[in-house]
Write a protein that binds this DNA or RNA. Structure first.
Lengths: 157, 157
DNA sequence: AATATATATCTTAGTCACTAAGAGAATTAG
DNA sequence: CTAATTCTCTTAGTGACTAAGATATATATT
């Protein structure tokens, strides 16, 4: 799974490269695609970038015509970022090979097996979130007070 | 799964941050951990960075005492990069929360279910590799000659 | 053996995304 | 109605990255 993840990152890098946008720009497009219309601040949160960096990201994406800035009329400090669907499609094209490849894989499983995989995906995500929280906790603990955690050796493949 | 992947990337960013090394430095450590002793060129291949960038990565990692350069005696152009296990352990510590979280998830599955998950992980990885190849093929085809690929709309969660 | 070509890493100059700190504008609290 | 807070943007400076070419070793050709 770690290998898949790493390869997936590479895939994204290639797409960003071809689309002529920066890596984190594409990451933001991904978030916008998953979450819909979000504020600049939320993008900063989710990506782990500073708000200053996000300004740059959105500037570039807007210039490329991929997103639009929309001021919130209720709270005029906020800036919503919304994808421009037609333009975003052009980038989406590059994910077709990935979708097709994964579809092929998924097609080899029965409905019941797919349900298991879905459960695992959901629980796994919760696990990763929990791990992130635990990591933060670990970092707030001064090193000498940390429980002596042992890293398990993984078997070499 | 995409969410897990994105969150996993964030996790790695945090670890790199705390460990005081750059993101791609950590990525290289990961590869070294998975593949063992590899050449600088291989690192470039796997990470998608230029060889020049890898020189920088290895310089930083070596200065931090995390890896060692070892010249291949059979082919003295090659430089093997090898992790220094003791030093790498300190970074490994930060992955303990992730390991524990995932172990907790895996513990909720029977052996048979785990076999299914393993099969999926393996096939999924092959799928991602295949997708990468397909993407390269797509890029070698001039845009007007590309088959009209339709991106499937994913259901919003 | 000598020259040419290929392979592997490193060097250099320049670019661009990122951070930190703080400014500006709008909102909420006292 | 001033003060504190929230949200985005601006600015200056940093550092990892690329492209192109240098260096060193290995392999192929005549």
């Amino acid at each position: 799974m770690r290998r898949s993840s790493a390869q997936g990152v590479l895939y994204g890098q290639t797409v960003a490269n071809v689309a002529g946008i920066a890596n984190s720009d594409l990451e933001c497009m991904d978030i916008l695609y998953l979450e819909g219309r979000v504020t600049a601040g939320r993008l900063a949160e989710v990506t782990g970038l500073t708000t200053g960096a996000i300004t740059g990201v959105v500037d570039r994406l807007e210039k490329a015509g991929l997103v639009r800035r929309e001021r919130d009329e209720n709270d005029r400090r906020k800036v919503f970022i919304a994808v421009v669907p037609e333009a975003a499609m052009k980038i989406g094209q590059f994910y077709v090979p990935m979708q097709q490849a994964m579809e092929k894989v998924f097609n080899t499983y029965s409905d019941e097996e797919l349900r298991l995989l879905l459960r695992f995906a959901t629980e796994g995500y919760k696990g990763v979130l929990a791990a992130t929280e635990a990591l933060k906790g670990l970092l707030d603990t001064p090193p000498e007070k940390r429980p002596d955690l042992k890293l398990k050796k993984l078997r070499q493949p």
